[in-house]
Amino acid sequence: MTVYSIWNNKGGTGKTSLAFQTVTRFAQKNPTKKILVIDMCPQANMSEILLGGQEGLGSKNLLAQQGRTPRCSIGGYFDLRLKAPFSPPVYSAEDYVSRPGEINSEIPINIDLVCGDPLLELQAIAMNTLANADIPGVNAWLGVINWLKELLNQLSYDYVFIDTNPSFSMYTQIALAASDRVMLPVMADDSSRRAIQNAFSLIYGLKLPSEVYSKYTFAKKMIDAGRDLPKIHLIIKNRLTQYMGTASAFRAVLVGIDADISQLLKSYPQHFTFSSVADGTENVRDFGTTGVVAFARGCPFSSMPTGKLTLSGRRVQVKPEYRKQALIAIDDVVSKIS
Score class of each variant (00 low, 15 high):
Gln123Val: 02
Ser59Leu: 08
Leu208Glu: 09
Val144Pro: 04
Val3Leu: 09
Ile103Ser: 14
Lys319Gln: 12
Glu106Cys: 14
Ser248Trp: 11
Phe20Val: 07
Thr13Trp: 12
Arg71His: 08
Lys10Ile: 12
Ile174Tyr: 07
His233Leu: 00
Lys10His: 11
Gln154His: 11
Cys41Glu: 12
Gly101Glu: 00
Ile330Thr: 02
Leu234Gly: 04
Pro185Trp: 09
Ser156Ala: 12
Pro100Gly: 04
Gln263Tyr: 02
Ile35Met: 04
Leu120Arg: 02
Ser87Asn: 13
Asp332Trp: 03
Tyr268Gly: 00
Pro166His: 06
Thr273Gly: 08
Ser156Gly: 04
Arg181Pro: 05
Leu51Asn: 05
Pro108His: 07
Asp258Cys: 00
Lys10Glu: 07
Met183Asp: 04
Asp224Arg: 00
Tyr171Ser: 03
Ile257Asp: 12
Asp134Ser: 10
Gly245Asp: 11
Leu113Gln: 06
Ala175Gly: 14
Leu151Phe: 03
Arg297Asn: 15
Ser191Glu: 14
Ser105Trp: 02
Gly56Arg: 01
Pro31Val: 05
Thr306Asn: 10
Ile236Val: 15
Trp7Met: 01
Asp279Glu: 15
Cys41Ala: 13
Tyr4His: 08
Val138Leu: 14
Leu80Thr: 08
Asp95Val: 11
Tyr216His: 12
Gln242Phe: 12
Val318Cys: 00
Ser262Cys: 14
Gly298Tyr: 01
Lys231Trp: 14
Ser210Met: 08
Ser169Gln: 09
Ile235Gln: 07
Leu265Gly: 00
Tyr77Thr: 01
Asn45Ile: 02
Asp258Leu: 06
Ala126Tyr: 09
Arg25Cys: 05
Gly226Pro: 01
Lys83Pro: 14
Arg239Gly: 08
Asn128Arg: 15
Val253Ala: 08
Cys72Arg: 11
Ala259Asp: 06
Asn45Met: 01
Leu142Pro: 04
Ser47His: 01
Ser214Val: 15
Phe250Asn: 15
Cys299Asp: 09
Asn132Pro: 07
Pro320His: 04
Val114Phe: 10
Asn139Asp: 10
Leu122Asn: 14
Phe168Pro: 07
Ser214Gly: 07
Leu176Gln: 06
Lys207Asp: 13
Lys237Ala: 11
Ala177Leu: 13
